[in-house]
Every structure is written in structure tokens, then in C-alpha cells.
């Protein structure tokens, strides 16, 4: 059901630029979480050498000492707003209310539910 989201993630992980290979995260960074990194150079240097290459499947990510990466527009990493969650939730509630209230409500609810699920699936993300 969430296949569109999946696409998104796939797209983003495919793009992988190798800017700033020099090994310095950014010139003269003011204290950031990685400010202590300079002490850690020796430890992380060899890793950086490998991850700079194309095989990022090597799981160095979690222990790497340096936050490298590329700059993107903030909007790109944030989830897009969507009305469909509300619509699907409402229709489910409606369907269950139909169980109590009778067939007419139930049928309307099912139609709403199908429509909103389709909307959810087809929404371009």
C-alpha cells in the first residue's frame, strides 16, 4: 500500500554524489556534533577511503566518524503533506459505524473506503 513512498526512498538512495572527497566535512565548521571529530581522524580515515568509492553497500555507515553528504533543499527530505490518511481513516470509521447503523451506511462507507485507498495508492509523492 505504501509503494509510492518506497519509490521515493529508492530514488533518493540511488543518487549519491561524491562531493567533498577531501575528507574534511566542511571547512572550519563551528562546533557541531562532529566537532570532536578531529581527534577521531585516525580511526575513521581508512573507512572514509573506502566509502568514498562506489561500494557503499559496505556497511561502514553506522560507525563512520564524519557526517558527510550532499546539500539538498529542505523540502526534499521532509514528508509531503497528504489528505489521504484522513480520508482513509474516516472511511474505516464510517464502515464500522455502518456495522451498527445499517446497510446503507455500510455501503456508502465501503465506497468511500475504496475511493480513498485508491487515492492513497495513486498519490504521486
Amino acid at each position: 500500500m505504501v509503494s509510492q513512498e518506497q519509490k521515493d526512498h529508492v530514488e533518493q538512495q540511488v543518487v549519491d554524489e561524491q562531493e567533498e572527497d577531501a575528507g574534511v566535512s566542511s571547512p572550519d565548521t563551528t562546533p557541531t556534533p562532529d566537532s570532536a571529530l578531529s581527534d577521531d581522524k585516525q580511526e575513521s580515515q581508512p573507512e572514509a577511503a573506502t566509502t568514498g568509492g562506489q561500494q557503499q553497500a559496505v556497511r561502514t555507515g553506522k560507525r563512520r566518524g564524519r557526517a558527510r553528504g550532499r546539500l539538498v533543499n529542505a523540502e526534499e527530505v521532509m514528508p509531503k503533506p497528504s489528505l489521504w490518511p484522513l480520508a482513509v481513516a474516516f472511511s474505516i470509521a464510517f464502515v464500522l459505524f455502518g456495522v451498527i447503523a445499517g446497510l446503507v451506511v455500510l455501503v456508502i462507507g465501503v465506497i468511500l473506503l475504496v475511493a480513498s485507498i485508491v487515492g492513497w495508492i495513486l498519490e504521486r509523492r
Binding site: V2, P79, S82, W84, P85, L86, V88, A89, F90, I92
Partner: peptide
């Protein structure tokens, strides 16, 4: 994120 919103509305 969308599932998250869905959970809230439910």
C-alpha cells in the same frame, strides 16, 4: 509519515 498521520486520524 503518511501511515503516521493515518494512525492519528483513526
Amino acid at each position: 509519515p503518511r501511515m503516521n498521520a493515518f494512525g492519528f486520524w483513526l
